[in-house]
């Protein structure tokens, strides 16, 4: 199964591409200095395929291509239906790649239920411990942060974080970032959702908090909308060959961003996303042009 999935992923490559593909840009996690490839893999919706064997195999192929392209961080949540089990099945099929950086969440309003949920999540992934656990959408955040900090202190967890999406509750996110010793914050950010630039991204840089960017393509709505328009010629200045790459390059050019985690069901898209993290990134002037262009479309 592992060989078949990996083989399927490799067969879809243009000749010579597998070895020639440069390693993606890596950013340091501020609290540790550990280097992390700047493009990760999200699993919201895309990996929730239930018991469908064909779709599970597709997800495994996506994961195989992700690791083959130098990716490390895979992110999921108990809220994502069968995604955790599908990731676990894929990791087992791929022989549990050493490169994996397992990022998960705790998602329950009850602080008392958090540890049991984390244990179940660990069972589904088939990992001994997670690299990163985040409080999903700040649900029950005070109790969960206490538990996660205790796990980290006991050596059962490497990093602690919080998440939000679609610009929700930024005031509370800001308070937590300012007062709690978290390692990561996860938020939505892209050329048309730029609220995080106002306070959260500068605060993350100031406090040494790594930033994970979720929903870079607005769950695909942004790229679907843009697909009707031609890619501007100036996208070629930074080596972007698709709207998705242009968006990811815009995001990764923000110095406070550590990892963007686009989700996909397609092997060619995961390669395209990883390729966005190599080659030049837009400067300030070009970022402004990207945001203005996308905002006008």
């Amino acid at each position: 199964m592992a060989t078949a999935a990996l083989g399927a992923a490799m067969l879809a490559l243009p000749p010579g591409r597998a070895l020639a593909q440069p390693a993606p840009l890596a950013r340091a996690i501020p609290s540790s200095g550990e280097r992390m490839p700047a493009v990760g893999l999200g699993s919201w919706i895309t990996f929730n395929v239930g018991n469908d064997p064909a779709l599970q195999a597709e997800c495994t192929a996506v994961m195989a291509a992700f690791f083959a392209g130098g990716g490390r961080m895979i992110d999921s949540s108990p809220m994502y239906g069968s995604s955790q089990a599908v990731i676990g099945r894929g990791l087992a099929a791929l022989g549990r790649p050493d490169a994996l950086f397992a990022a998960e969440k705790v998602w329950t309003s009850s602080g008392a239920n958090g540890p049991a949920q984390i244990d179940e999540t660990r069972r589904l992934w088939g990992v001994e411990r997670f690299d990163l656990l985040q409080v999903h959408n700040l649900l029950g955040w005070e109790a969960h942060l206490d538990s996660l900090f205790a796990m980290k202190a006991a050596g059962r967890l490497r990093y602690v974080g919080i998440t939000t999406s679609e610009g929700r509750r930024h005031d509370l996110v800001e308070q937590i970032m300012a007062r709690q010793p978290i390692d990561f914050v996860q938020l939505s950010y892209n050329p048309v959702d730029r609220e995080a630039e106002q306070r959260l991204l500068p605060l993350a840089a100031e406090r040494g908090i790594a930033v994970i960017v979720n929903r870079p393509f607005q769950q695909g709505a942004l790229t679907r909308r843009l697909d009707r328009a031609p890619l501007p010629d100036w996208a070629g200045e930074i080596g972007a060959t698709s709207w998705a790459q242009l968006i990811l390059k815009f995001i990764l050019a923000e110095p406070a961003v550590t990892v963007a985690i686009p989700a996909t069901t397609r092997v060619d898209h995961v390669r395209e996303n990883l390729a966005a993290a190599s080659g030049p990134l837009p400067d300030r002037e070009l970022r402004g042009r990207i945001a203005a262009h996308l905002g006008a479309l």
């Binding site: 395929v49 239930g50 779709l55 509750r169």
Partner: peptide, 27 residues
């Protein structure tokens, strides 16, 4: 969770249409 007014209907959708319709094919 944020205020309910900030959520769109598709924020509650956990799966893709393709996966949903394949459930009926399998059943």
């Amino acid at each position: 969770m944020g205020p309910w007014s900030t959520y769109r209907l598709d924020d509650f959708l956990l799966f893709s249409p393709r996966v949903y319709w394949r459930l009926f094919e399998a059943e």
